[in-house]
Design a protein around this nucleic acid. Sequence first.
DNA 1: GTCTATAATACGATAGAC
DNA 2: GTCTATCGTATTATAGAC
Lengths: 187, 187
Amino acid sequence: MARKSDKRERLLEGAIETIYQRGFNQTTLADIADVSGVQLGNFYYYFKTKDEIVEAVIAERRGSLLSTYAEWDKLPSPKVRIKAFLNTYIDDAENLTANGCPLGGLSFELNKREDVPDLVDKVEKLFSLHLQWLTHQFKLMRKAKAEEFADEFYSTIQGAILLANCKKDSRIIKNQINRLIKLVDRM
Amino acid sequence: MARKSDKRERLLEGAIETIYQRGFNQTTLADIADVSGVQLGNFYYYFKTKDEIVEAVIAERRGSLLSTYAEWDKLPSPKVRIKAFLNTYIDDAENLTANGCPLGGLSFELNKREDVPDLVDKVEKLFSLHLQWLTHQFKLMRKAKAEEFADEFYSTIQGAILLANCKKDSRIIKNQINRLIKLVDRM
DNA sequence: GTCTATAATACGATAGAC
DNA sequence: GTCTATCGTATTATAGAC
């Protein structure tokens, strides 16, 4: 009795990685099938269209994000939680410099498409998760302008990643994140 | 005696606008020819390839930027100049919210291409112009960490545009820019 | 210089054998 | 469920008449 095939999972993993590295528009289904070790024709047994797999990618990223929040939420204070959040960007600085932000990049690309409002909506909600979580943490810190702080922090992060990616210099991310960490410490 | 054709100029203008609105990957040469009122076949009389016209777009944007700097440099102090720079983002907030940053978006897209290092290099240099100009202004203000300030400001700007674009909310740009303006005022 | 074909190719998607 | 073969279409690019 054959084990249940893990090809769907492999395709999804391959799609997450490939779309991140090459961008959605420049990723072909052949690329995804290839890195996943699946024949192109077989791709369609698991996903009906290219849009369907990117939708699955968004759902998967959303799931990962929610589990990560669950972990952070175990930390004792919002201050510590925000610093844990910020430190992930330093830990991942090299990847972010090489490929940009997986959420920011996907949002930007899908936002340009007018033919799939559902997909645009889903990626917007995914992108906004960080903002909501940050806003919540600042509210717990009794900050009157919690939302503005969240926008300030997340703008800086996204912008720093874009600059680092364009200039191929991860120090931009590290410097800006360290500045934000100090800012939190002084709050 | 026929006037010299302005079709090259029209194609370039059309390309600038269309690539900005739809992104490079999702812009077809037919789109550009169409909005420019030029037959597709005729496109190739003026530009040999799609990459060649985006190269011209980059050069054109570079030229515009340099003239803008020349204007700003007439202003009496670096503080006033930086505020003039910042205010352009508020003036253009609706466009930026609808389409993202023309430089940031192009940089992001072309950065993913490994087959055209020259193009990647040119867009990187274009993107960096703002950073250089900002760094120079902060140096004139005798700021020890001029480069870090430039990174901080430009990261915030680029990130705010990305957030506004994704959430379709121009207030994010306006709020962040106003915060930066106040920051400059206090310097 | 301009236009009408049309070639060449890449890629999303399908058919059908196994 | 998996694979090979192939279709259909979009898009870059060219040929060649005018």
